[in-house]
Structures are given as C-alpha cells and as structure tokens.
C-alpha cells in the first residue's frame, strides 16, 4: 500500500497535471473562439453577426452548465476520446470542455482591450488580418492574456477538485475520500490548504510574469 504522504504527493501531481493539461487544451480550443468573438463582433475587423451569435450562444451555454453536471453529460465523449471515463487523464476532457468557453470570454475581453488606434495603424501599413492578430493583438494584449490565464488556472484547479469526486484523482479525490467518507477532517484540511497553496503559486507566478512582460510601465 501507499503511505499517506505518497498519496498526497501523488494527489498534488495529479491536480497539477489535470490543471495544466486542461488549461493548455482549454486555450487550444478557447483562444481561437476568443479571436472569433473579437473579430466577428460588430465593431471587430470582420463583423459577422451570424458567426458571432453562434459562438456567443455556445460559449454562454458552456459557461452556464455546472461543471459536475457537464462532467457526467460528457462521459460518452470522454470514453470516445480517452477510452475510459475515470482517471486524471480522462478528467481532462470535461475540464477542457467546461474551461474553453470561459477561456474564450477571457481572451475576447483581453483582445478587446487592445488600442483600436494601434490596430488601425497596422491596417494603414497594409498588415493582413493574420498579421494583425499575430503581430499586433497577441503582442499588445499579452499582459492581459497572462493575467487571464492565471484566473483560468485557478478556476480549472477548482474544477479539477470536483473531478476528483467521480474518479479523476488528485487532491480533491483525497479530500473527499478522507473527509467525507472516513470523517478524517485533518486530511481533508491538509488537502484544502494544499489546493489554496497551489492557487497562490499560480497567481504569484502568473502575475509576476505578466508584470515582467509589460512594457507600458516605465
């Protein structure tokens, strides 16, 4: 058998693994959606009411579904992609699906902060849409995007603890196993404190990077 320390160390690893994995794939999915929302908005560079509306509705539905329910709903999808419905890797699927719409909104609001004048200047120089997205919007909004990513990480970490409840592993699973099923409140508290510490680490590191990369501060 594993010792308790082994279990907790493993729990930390699983939590970090699920969180980073889901955040990464959440961005792979959410980032393009965020760009679509910004570009197709009626004040965007390629206004397109229909596309905007569709993505808008999909992300809103995604965001309003409670995570525990979504997790159960998408079990067939999880099984289809991962071949099984339990374990940390499998938990990444519902985590990504619930994080992507939320990330799309974060990205949208970061991109919308980019000074319209700078985009216009790039247009006046003959930059293509891709060049504006890649070389102007992404660069100018990076501070805000990184700040957003730290928010996304913390939120997804919270979700990952819930994923633990249905076999996703991680600190959440340990907390529930000991605290809820065995009434060992001490272990539960240790897990809670570890979760808080992880959130803090993500926050501090994220904010530090964001500030370091911001050239608007003299």
């Amino acid at each position: 058998m594993y010792t308790l320390t082994d279990q907790i160390l493993r729990g930390i690893w699983e939590t970090v693994y699920m969180t980073l994995g889901a955040t990464f794939f959440g961005y792979v999915l959410g980032m393009p959606l965020g760009f679509v929302l910004t570009m197709c908005h009626k004040k965007g560079l390629r206004p397109h009411p229909v596309i905007y509306r569709i993505v808008d509705i999909v992300t809103n539905i995604g965001r309003s579904l409670p995570f525990v329910i979504l997790m159960v709903l998408v079990i067939p999808v999880t099984v289809f992609i991962m071949g099984k419905s339990y374990g940390s890797t499998a938990a990444i699927v519902p985590l990504v699906l619930s994080a992507a719409p939320f990330i799309a909104r974060l990205v949208e609001s970061s991109l919308n902060e980019v000074d319209r004048g700078v985009i216009e200047a790039a247009e006046s120089m003959g930059a293509s849409l891709w060049q504006i997205m890649y070389r102007v919007m992404l660069v100018e909004s990076r501070t805000s995007l990184i700040t957003g990513a730290t928010i996304a990480l913390s939120t997804i970490l919270g979700y990952s603890a819930m994923a633990g409840a249905i076999g996703g592993g991680g600190l959440g699973a340990i907390a529930i196993q000991y605290g809820y099923q065995r009434y060992d409140v001490k272990i539960m508290w240790i897990c809670v404190i570890l979760l808080i510490v992880l959130v803090q680490i993500f926050q501090v590191v994220g904010m530090y990077i964001a500030r370091k990369l911001d050239r608007r501060i003299v």
Binding site: D115, G117, V118, E120, A121, E123, S124, M125, G126, A127, S128, V136, V139, E140, R142, T143, L213, D214, R215, R216
Partner: peptide, 19 residues
Amino acid sequence: NDLRHKTAMIFQHFNLLMQ
C-alpha cells in the same frame, strides 16, 4: 494592402506598439 505600403499614415495619438 500592397498599395498601403505606399500610402503611410501618422496619427494624433501616435499608435505605436506599446509592447
């Protein structure tokens, strides 16, 4: 876009890339 390489523009608020 090609033509715009030949018609540059400057603005009241400069519009430089701040980053």
